[in-house]
């Protein structure tokens, strides 16, 4: 059988896996420091880095024609659009001339219960 490594530069997959595992450990330990910004960066920033590594090196997105990247990116952009269009109604509970009293109530009751739980 012919060898096709000539066409594809040999990637050291085990090394990539090693990096992914190290990143995973960082993302677990990050929140232990207790600082919200560090948690955000270690949890979600690292998730993006991991996803990027898997997409590029394991799924070989870096070797494929550019249009694959474009349509995958387009679907991701549409999801950002969905979030941007819906969040003002669902995420926020009040705005100019309106408020979502049922949602506010649920949040208040929930937080009151939580406060009680900590009190005991």
């Amino acid at each position: 059988m012919s060898h096709s490594e000539a066409a594809h530069p040999h990637t050291n997959y085990v090394k990539i896996w090693g990096i992914l595992v190290v990143l995973l450990i960082v993302s677990i330990l990050g929140p232990e420091l207790g600082h919200p910004v560090i948690t955000l960066v270690t949890a979600f920033g690292i998730a993006f880095v991991k996803a990027y590594l898997v997409a590029m090196k394991f799924m070989h997105l870096d070797r494929e024609p550019k249009f694959v990247m474009y349509f995958v990116a387009t679907t991701l952009a549409f999801m950002a659009l969905l979030f941007a269009g819906v969040a003002p109604d669902v995420m926020l509970h009040d705005g100019k001339n309106w408020d979502h009293s049922a949602a506010k109530q649920v949040v208040e009751t929930g937080q009151a219960l939580q406060g009680e739980g900590q009190g005991h």
Binding site: V86, V90, H100, A103
Partner: peptide
């Protein structure tokens, strides 16, 4: 279900999206 923290408007968005 808005009484239990859900939001009916979300469905309308998902549907019309």
């Amino acid at each position: 279900d808005p009484n239990r923290g859900g939001d009916p408007v979300l469905w309308q968005h998902l549907f019309w999206f």
